Amino acid sequence: MFRPHFSRKATCRIVDPAPRARVLGNHSYSTQQAHQYHFSLGRVRALGPILWVFTAVGTIYLGCAAYEVHQDVQEFKKLPLGPLTYANIDAARSNKGTRQATATKSFSLMDVFTTPWSNLNSSEKMITTAAALNLGIFAATWNSPRAFLAFAHIPINSRNFTLFTSMFGHAGSLHLSLNMYALFSFGPQVAGSPTIESSGSHLTAFYLSSGLMASLAYHLTTIWPNKMSRFSPALGASGAIYAMLGAWAMNYPDQHIGIIFIPGSLPAEHALWGIFAFELWGTLIGFGPYLRWAHAAHLGGLGVGMAYVIYDGKNRMWKPTRRFAFNQMQRLKMI
């Protein structure tokens, strides 16, 4: 995410320009004395955005799981693979993901232009769609400040939905290019990992939910310690991208990662903690006017991606949601 820079201090110091001695009763004083004036910054809501984000995350996961279950059932019915049970369609999905994993990991930006859409698997389609959405929204808002602000999240405002829309807007072409470069660098690797198993629906749920959690992290840090950032419009896909980075590093700790424009590389496991420390410093202390980044969103996204792999989000979140969706759809005779 990107945000304009504002000072962290919320106190102004005012001195009378023409000091004069005054007498009040038996006491005299000079107007040259400095007076501290404190003003209210306005309240940033916390409970409402938290509830909204967690509700949205649950809705996203359930919707994506229901869509995938429907697709799996349609494919399952075409083949004589036994009775229609969740165990059977889950086994078929796992086998399919294993077969597609190698191809998914090697997916690149060039494949978008050289491979027919029908030949892409679901996770490859998701990455391509995410990039197209970011590019399209950037083009639509480039010359329209009003549209730009409609997508941006400003914490002092009472608009929860911008916690979601802000992950699709970008502040400039360089901002967009770097995020899309990172998406195509880490996205296919994460999609083909044991965590996602080439599931486009799972990848969609993870990407959107981690972006929401990253936006929420930025929002809450404008209560403390970055109080003046509550007035700053923030937007960008980097919160979700950092979640991809965290999940990638946890799945492939021995792979090396390099930083663009900087020579050399580091093992993912070591680089991850360096990036974590950098973003933590930026969140708590900052880098002055030199880096106008929403470090809290990066830190939140990175933490979500790491935690999702460490705490086995596939088996603790995704598969139970799929099972619930299957049972409810079967009960309602939707499948």
Rank of each mutant, 00 (worst) to 15 (best):
G258E: 10
M110L: 13
H295M: 09
G192M: 07
D111M: 10
E197H: 09
P19S: 05
R99V: 12
D90P: 01
M167L: 08
N121I: 04
Q328S: 11
L174R: 13
T141C: 14
P267L: 11
Q71P: 03
A92Q: 14
A214C: 05
G303Q: 06
Q32W: 08
M306W: 10
G305I: 12
T55E: 00
L109M: 12
Y311A: 15
R159N: 13
I335Q: 03
L149K: 09
L133G: 00
N88F: 04
A271C: 11
R146G: 05
P233G: 02
I335T: 01
W293F: 12
W248P: 03
Q36Y: 09
R331K: 15
A92W: 04
R20K: 09
N179L: 09
D254P: 08
F151T: 10
H153G: 03
Q74F: 01
W52L: 02
T141F: 04
A65P: 00
V190G: 10
N26S: 09
T114W: 02
R292H: 08
F184N: 06
D16L: 06
R292S: 13
P188R: 04
T128G: 02
L203T: 01
V69R: 01
T204L: 05
Y61D: 00
S94T: 14
W281K: 13
A277E: 07
A243Q: 03
A132T: 07
T59W: 00
T283S: 14
H256C: 07
L280M: 15
A101D: 05
T321G: 03
R159C: 07
T11L: 13
A271H: 11
T85L: 04
E269K: 14
S118E: 07
Q330A: 14
R93G: 03
W293S: 10
W248T: 06
V69G: 02
L149V: 02
F2A: 10
I259C: 07
T129K: 05
L47F: 06
L84T: 04
N226V: 00
F184R: 06
K314F: 13
A10G: 03
V53M: 01
K78C: 06
Y67Q: 06
D111I: 05
T104N: 08
I260Q: 14
L332W: 15
I257N: 03
S199K: 00
F148D: 13
M126E: 11
K333F: 06
S193P: 10
L178D: 11
Q74T: 04
S229F: 05
R292Q: 14
Q255E: 14
I196E: 11
L183P: 08
A18E: 13
R45A: 14
A87S: 01
A297M: 06
Q71W: 07
